[in-house]
Design a protein around this nucleic acid. Structure first.
Lengths: 247, 247
DNA sequence: AAGATACGGACTGTATACAATTTGTACCAC
DNA sequence: GTGGTACAAATTGTATACAGTCCGTATCTT
């Protein structure tokens, strides 16, 4: 997967630090509120303090760490309200991307790309019910949302979308792995794909308001899934980063 | 002015580096596209390389620097389209803040604060025309927008608003110092204040859609001012950070 | 003369040493 | 027993030294 963001440092050690600390945080090996000692991380990740420090500073900017006034960092703890807000924000920003794409128009080749992605998702969604290819769906879904971001035509908007999506529980595919065998969830994928098509059609027809409204509503599927998952602690563990949620 | 953001490092040297480099960039002492050498900055700001490095990394995250694949940073050059998008984005985010405030409700004490600020702005706007207190207007205008951000009730939304506002030309008071003696500009302040009141009223009445729409439209004043200023190079120089605009 | 290659300088990335501040603990006074 | 103070350990902030990489230049070869 072309997961690596362009803004990631190419530098090997610093990159290892960022990835390593992220992993420690999202896997739950370090708890929310816990203080992260540089020497400790240094030992655990096999790096010197310098790249660790760079990584910490960066992850603080990303919003998953909090800096202590007296120095050092702690793991930020997210409330359920924070996740709701992050999803809401993603909806707003993707809505803006869709509206801008519609208002300013997109190139024919990109329209073709978009339709190709939609066709691929259709194949997965309308396939045989018992052999549902979840990874494939997640992949194509991510690609649709990636393309939508690009279609905005705005570097600045795209960058903010990237930022919000870096919070793992805010992404469009955050809850995909949580509930593969629940019928209601399967249905929501069909609804989601219908919304994808509506967004695409609105962009093609230059209907900015519709594109924005549908894209925003589309994000509510994630919130719906969130509500569902939060009722079942066993499901929560399957959503990456959802263990950061506390008070 | 309570300008210092909470997320600013308290550390003295690193803070000096961030502020110093920002100043170099926005004052135009270093040109867009120019490579920033760590040793050079080190000498110019009288700091060692370590805090310089931390500052550079941070300013890259903020979006005013770009990192070179082979290493090092350059000053990012913004197009006029970028500024338009940044203003648009601020409108979208402040619109969201206003809508959330309306939908979720705000405390009576904050409602009082908001009305107090509006009254202060009224005093300035409806004062004697020849002795217009621009700094005071800028101060209270900033306070209104700051409060709006807080009223969203969402840490996550507030943080993103802060981010966008850190681009100096995207802020609500960016163009205030550019054109103090132009009649049309004076008028726009009256219109802006009317929009402030409409936003406040919509929030009080729990009219989310109206609050969002007006707040979004409110940002268009900045775009209007941008168009005006861009026609006059002498005015451009008076807007902080607007010299970063090139291709 | 033109191109390629090797060398040199400059710069960034990383590690480590040092200094200053903070935090935890133990002991003492009341 | 409680509060405070002083000391010690640990941790962060900063500086500097070292290593590796990239870029430009000059020389050599064809």
């Amino acid at each position: 997967m072309a997961q690596r963001k362009a803004s990631e440092k190419a530098s090997s050690q610093t990159l290892k630090a960022v990835l390593g600390i992220r992993e420690l945080v999202f896997s739950g090996e370090v708890s929310p509120g816990e203080r992260l000692s540089e020497v400790n991380l240094s030992a655990r990740l096999g790096l010197s303090r310098t790249p660790i420090r760079a990584g910490l500073a960066r992850l603080e900017q990303e919003g998953i760490l909090e800096l202590i006034p007296s120095g050092g960092y702690t793991v930020r703890s997210f409330s359920e309200a924070d996740i709701v807000d992050a999803i809401e924000l993603r909806g707003v920003l993707e809505g803006t991307a869709a509206r801008l794409a519609a208002e300013r128009g997109i190139s024919p080749s990109r329209l073709v790309s978009m339709k190709a992605i939609l066709a691929e998702i259709d194949k997965v969604v309308s396939g045989p019910g018992d052999a549902f290819d979840f990874p494939r769906y997640a992949e194509m879904n991510a690609e649709f949302h990636d393309l939508l971001k690009v279609l905005s035509g705005s570097e600045i908007v795209a960058r903010e979308i990237d930022r919000v999506m870096r919070l793992p529980f805010a992404g469009p595919s955050a809850f995909l792995n949580a509930q593969p065998d629940i019928p209601a969830f399967r249905t929501s994928l069909v609804v989601g794909q219908a919304q994808h098509r509506a967004i695409a059609h609105a962009i093609e027809m230059r209907e900015g308001a519709r594109a924005e409204a549908v894209a925003r509503e589309h994000s509510r599927l994630a919130r719906q899934n969130l509500d569902f998952v939060m009722d079942d602690h066993k499901l929560m563990a399957r959503v990456p980063g959802l263990m950061l949620v506390s008070g």
